[in-house]
């Protein structure tokens, strides 16, 4: 008899145990958007990926109507409406993770289209681009210099744009900055010549 009741307790206990695990599994929310690249994989991809595209190349392609690239404008709709690369789609940077945007990116990746994204400048573009890369979209390129440089180009006759340098040193820092040791007190102290006060004679009055 005693054994039987023990057995019953065991069954209830294990039933509760199983129930807890199942409830736990059901309630852990699955994230809707997941990274496809681990940080390590992302860094590896960065080393081998050619992710910059020059505005000159883009301007030429637009002029020739090649439809070679899909352009995505990350700026606000207001800026987008003032001017954009011909044929580009506006997805403001804060909305790239919305369902519609993601499915658009998915569709582009599925037909292995080369996407060119741009914001006002390239450093604004880097953040969203990095995020998309980690989500697995490695078919996206950054427009060098962004809209600011592109819009300054002569669209009819795009020539090499000077002064575009992503991550190339513009100066020889070592030469300018010398070594960065602050203790360089080799300044000569100026000799101080004491000025003697010359007493001028004062008229003293007598009584």
């Amino acid at each position: 008899m005693k054994e039987f009741s023990n057995n019953k307790g065991l069954i209830t206990a294990s039933a509760i145990f199983v129930a807890v695990i199942i409830i736990g599994l059901l309630t852990t929310r699955k994230p809707e958007i997941d990274y496809r690249f681990t940080p390590g994989q992302t860094i590896e991809t960065l080393q081998n990926l050619k992710y910059f595209i020059s505005p000159v190349e883009v301007a030429k392609s637009v002029k020739a109507n090649e439809n070679q690239f899909v352009y995505i404008d990350l700026r606000s709709p207001y800026d987008f409406n003032k001017g954009n690369i011909q044929g580009s789609v506006n997805i403001p940077a804060n909305r790239i993770l919305e369902k519609e945007s993601l499915s658009f990116f998915e569709a582009l990746a599925a037909r292995s289209a080369t996407v060119v994204i741009y914001d006002a400048d390239q450093s604004l573009t880097t953040g969203p681009w990095m995020l998309l890369l980690q989500l697995g979209f490695n078919n996206i390129k950054i427009l060098q210099g962004g809209w600011n440089i592109y819009s300054a180009l002569n669209q009819q006759n795009p020539a090499q744009y000077p002064g575009l340098s992503a991550e190339t040193p513009k100066y020889d820092y070592a030469a300018i900055g010398k070594s960065m040791t602050p203790e360089t007190s080799t300044e000569k102290k100026e000799e101080i010549v004491p000025k003697k006060k010359v007493k001028t004679a004062q008229v003293e009055g007598g009584c």
Binding site: P39, S123, T126, M130, Q134, S165, A166, E167, T168, K170
Partner: peptide, 18 residues
Amino acid sequence: YSNDDIFANQAWTITRRL
């Protein structure tokens, strides 16, 4: 920091994600 802020931003995105 890097020459521009592209590499620095890349490093930031990865470490911030962590």
